[in-house]
Nucleic acid binder design. Structure first.
Lengths: 151, 151
DNA sequence: ATAATTGTTTACGTAAACGTCAAGATAATT
DNA sequence: AATTATCTTGACGTTTACGTAAACAATTAT
């Protein structure tokens, strides 16, 4: 059966969590995701990750949902979306909200914008490449004496 | 007649100066090149532009050669070469030297490296684009109920 | 002569995304 | 109990290419 409109669209639906995501401390989580603890704390610092639960001693504990959320953030970052842009997402819609639904259209919009930006960058780089090659050729020609020095 | 090996390869040979480049002050030069005075002083500060002549009052005066050199720097910058990379150029070969020749092979090398980098960036962006589109499609599919929420 | 413009040096500020101590508290291990 | 590992919160450092302001000198215009 396909998803009915009753089902909730959560991070889980996107990330299909397979392994047993037991609550972990920051160091373990960082290692697991290939980032540093500083990065995780930084995301919390700028409000991208909501304040996580704390143990008795004050150590951060990350639940499965926290982990999914962090993975989500890393995925967007991997796609080239800046932390600032993610903030826009979080501003308009509560990224904390388990119900992923209302966030999604905005996300699609941002992704679309981003595809446009990427296309633009590619175009710029292509034309840049042409220019560099042309400049290179010109210098080389002069060096080889295939071109007059003065017009 | 084409260039003989006796002729010197100078910035002029690259930039084919046409207008009468009379010595100018920093403000005028900046306006002429569409940059700020801060930029010019900065280039001097980091040693990319050699210290220019000064007037009685201490004001910088830029000769035709200074201007050509600055144009050269701006050209390289336009091609995406960092000021740091330009420094490498200047380290190995005296960029002040009027004889542009010995600098050129290194320049060609840097340009070649740069073309490689640009190619790499283009490839990365292309694959990024694919990923974004795929991710976008996936989310959209879930939203539209065309995909099962759980595997 | 005064005002306005343009110049000078010095030096701190900016953006992005963390890196890297420092100093101390807990927790786990031996 | 002592060592070791991991955690905590500041808070300053890093990179790139300048922006911006302060305080003052010199030149040009009125």
């Amino acid at each position: 059966m396909y998803s009915s409109s009753e089902e909730k669209l959560t991070y889980k639906a996107i990330f299909m969590t397979t392994a047993t995501d037991k609550p972990v401390q920051i160091g373990e989580l960082a290692k697991k995701l290939g980032i540093t603890t500083r990065t995780i704390r930084y995301y919390e610092e700028i409000g991208l990750m909501g304040s996580s639960e704390r143990q008795a001693g004050g150590a951060r504990m990350y639940s499965r949902d926290d982990i999914l959320r962090l993975k989500f953030i890393l995925k967007l970052k991997e796609l080239g979306i800046s932390l600032k842009e993610m903030h826009e997402l979080a501003e308009n819609f509560d990224i904390n909200n388990q119900n992923f639904g209302p966030l999604t259209p905005k996300l699609l919009e941002i992704l679309d914008q981003h595809i446009g930006k990427v296309d633009q960058k590619i175009a710029n780089l292509s034309s840049l490449r042409k220019e560099i090659v042309a400049y290179r050729t010109r210098i080389d020609d002069i060096l080889q004496g295939r071109q007059p020095l003065v017009k």
